[in-house]
Computed example of a mutant assay.
Amino acid sequence: MIIQKQYKFYAAHRNEELQDKCRNLHGHRYGIVCHFQVQRTGSYSTLFSDFDDKIGPFLKEYYDHGMLINVSDPLYATLKNHMEVHGEDLKLREFQGPTSVENLAHQLFTEITQMGFELVRLDVQETDTSVISYDRNDWERDNAAQVFSQTEPVKATS
């Protein structure tokens, strides 16, 4: 059986590798739809709140109103220096590669899976007309190819 849950968060990013409008700092209202494989063990399988109690606070703490940034982006060093000099604490979600929607899908798939959920597919909506569907096969293939990895361990909230 599949349970589907939806979440939203706002975040800024840029893709410094591109030579188009996405090279500029800009933001999105990201929408994610999680598709979980669950097993019925009586009258129900999993409470919706089991997902919400972990995923909602995690997205709020680490993603919402933050900036997704590649640690190799020259802007990253500038922002870190700014934070040190001015004592500001900007919310930076570090990536080991470009902050493309594909890499965001991989990172979120990893983090949600590490929370103990059996995620089978993740849809990430970047704009009103652009959605990527990322499934367990994509995730396993990307992990085997080591195309992307996180900089810090996932901290799932209880």
Rank of each mutant, 00 (worst) to 15 (best):
M1V: 13
I2Q: 07
K5S: 15
K8N: 15
K8E: 04
Y10D: 14
N15C: 07
N15D: 10
N15G: 04
E16S: 09
E16V: 09
E17D: 13
L18W: 11
L18Q: 12
L18S: 04
Q19M: 10
D20P: 07
K21F: 00
N24M: 11
R29W: 03
Y30E: 07
G31S: 12
I32N: 01
I32F: 08
C34A: 15
H35N: 06
F36Y: 15
F36M: 13
V38H: 04
V38G: 03
Q39H: 13
R40N: 13
R40F: 01
T41P: 00
G42F: 12
G42L: 11
S43D: 14
S43V: 03
Y44H: 03
Y44C: 06
F48M: 10
F51Q: 01
K54C: 00
K54L: 09
L59N: 12
Y63V: 01
H65F: 02
G66P: 01
M67I: 07
L68D: 08
I69G: 05
V71C: 11
S72L: 15
S72H: 14
D73S: 11
P74E: 08
Y76F: 15
T78A: 11
L79S: 11
N81M: 13
M83L: 11
M83R: 05
E88F: 09
L90C: 07
F95S: 10
F95P: 03
Q96E: 13
Q96H: 14
G97N: 08
T99D: 05
T99Q: 10
T99S: 14
V101E: 00
L104R: 05
A105C: 14
H106D: 05
H106N: 08
Q107G: 03
T110R: 01
E111R: 02
E111Q: 03
T113C: 15
T113W: 05
G116F: 09
G116Y: 03
F117K: 03
L122V: 02
V124R: 07
E126A: 13
T127N: 06
S130H: 12
V131W: 11
S133W: 09
Y134G: 10
Y134C: 01
R136G: 00
R136Q: 10
N137M: 02
N137K: 13
N137L: 11
E140W: 03
E140L: 12
D142K: 02
N143Q: 12
A144T: 13
A144S: 13
Q146T: 07
F148E: 03
T151W: 01
K155A: 13
T157Y: 01
S158V: 02
